[in-house]
C-alpha cells in the first residue's frame, strides 16, 4: 500500500485546533444531553412504577416512541421537520433566533432519546429494590413521595450505576450524530481534517483514540463511584 503516512498533520496548525475544538463540542453536547436525559429519565422511570395507570401509560408511551425510532431520524425530525409544523413565527424563531440552533436542537434531541434509556434503567432499579421496601415504608407512615425520595430512588440509583455508566458512554458516542445537523464536534472535525489533507487514516485514528481514552476514563471513575456507593446486603454488593 503506497500510503503516504504523515502523523505530524495532526499537530499542525490549524488541524490540531480543529480537533481540540471538536472535542470541546463533543463534551458540551454529551454533558448537556446527559443532564436532560438523567433528569427527565428519572421522572419517566418513576412514572412507570407508580400505582396510577395514567402515569404508567404516559411513561410507557414515551419510552416506546423514543426507543423505537432511530436516533439519526429523531435528530433530523427535530431539526428540519419540527419548525415546519409549528406556527410560522415560532418556526422562524427556532430556525433563526434560537441561540446556536444546531447545538441546542442536538442537545434536546439526544437528551430526550437518552431519557427513554435512563427511564428503563431507573424503572428496573426501583423494581429490583422490591415491592417489599415500598410496602414497609408506607406501613411506617411515610407518604408515597417520601417512600420514593428516601427509600426507592437511593436504592435504585446505587443498584443501576453500572447500567447508567453504560448509558453515559452511549451518549458520549451518540453525540457524533450531531454532525448531521452541522455541529462541528470531534467526528465532524476528523472528517474535515481528512478531506482537507487526504490523511484520512491519521485523522480517524486520532478521533478513535480520543473517544476511547475518554470512555476508559469515565468507566474507571464510575467504577470507583460504584465501589464507594455500594450497599452491604444488596444484590449489587454481592457481585464484588
Amino acid at each position: 500500500m503506497r500510503y503516504n503516512w504523515n502523523w505530524s498533520v495532526l499537530f499542525a496548525d490549524p488541524y490540531l485546533g480543529w480537533l481540540l475544538s471538536g472535542l470541546g463540542w463533543t463534551v458540551l453536547v454529551s454533558a448537556a444531553a446527559w443532564i436532560i436525559g438523567l433528569a427527565l429519565g428519572s421522572v419517566i422511570g418513576v412514572m412507570r412504577t407508580l400505582p396510577s395507570p395514567i402515569a404508567r401509560a404516559i411513561g410507557a408511551t414515551y419510552v416506546e416512541i423514543f426507543r423505537n425510532i432511530p436516533l439519526l431520524v429523531q435528530i433530523f425530525l427535530f431539526y428540519f421537520v419540527l419548525p415546519e409544523l409549528l406556527p410560522r413565527e415560532m418556526g422562524r424563531w427556532l430556525k433563526r433566533d434560537l441561540p446556536h440552533p444546531e447545538f441546542t436542537m442536538a442537545v434536546i434531541s439526544l437528551g430526550l432519546y437518552t431519557a427513554c434509556r435512563v427511564a428503563e434503567q431507573v424503572r428496573a432499579g426501583i423494581n429490583t429494590a422490591g415491592r417489599g421496601q415500598a410496602s414497609a415504608g408506607l406501613a411506617t407512615g411515610l407518604t408515597l413521595a417520601q417512600v420514593y425520595r428516601f427509600i426507592l430512588l437511593p436504592l435504585a440509583y446505587r443498584l443501576t450505576i453500572p447500567a447508567l455508566t453504560n448509558e453515559f458512554l452511549n451518549v458520549f458516542k451518540n453525540s457524533s450524530l450531531a454532525l448531521t445537523i452541522g455541529v462541528l464536534e470531534l467526528t465532524a472535525r476528523a472528517r474535515a481534517v481528512a478531506d482537507y489533507t487526504y490523511q484520512s487514516i491519521e485523522a480517524f485514528a486520532a478521533a478513535s483514540l480520543i473517544y476511547a481514552s475518554i470512555s476508559f476514563l469515565i468507566a474507571f471513575l464510575m467504577r470507583r463511584v460504584e465501589r464507594r456507593a455500594r450497599l452491604a446486603g444488596t444484590l449489587a454488593a454481592g457481585t464484588h
Binding site: F80, P83, E84, R92, K95, R96, P101, E102, L179, T180, I181, G182, L184, A188
Partner: peptide, 18 residues
C-alpha cells in the same frame, strides 16, 4: 456559517429559510 453534511441538507436548509 452552517456546516451542512451534504448537498440535500444544504438545499433543505435554504428551502426552509433556515
Amino acid at each position: 456559517v452552517l456546516s451542512t453534511k451534504d448537498q440535500p441538507q444544504g438545499w433543505i436548509a435554504l428551502e426552509t429559510d433556515r
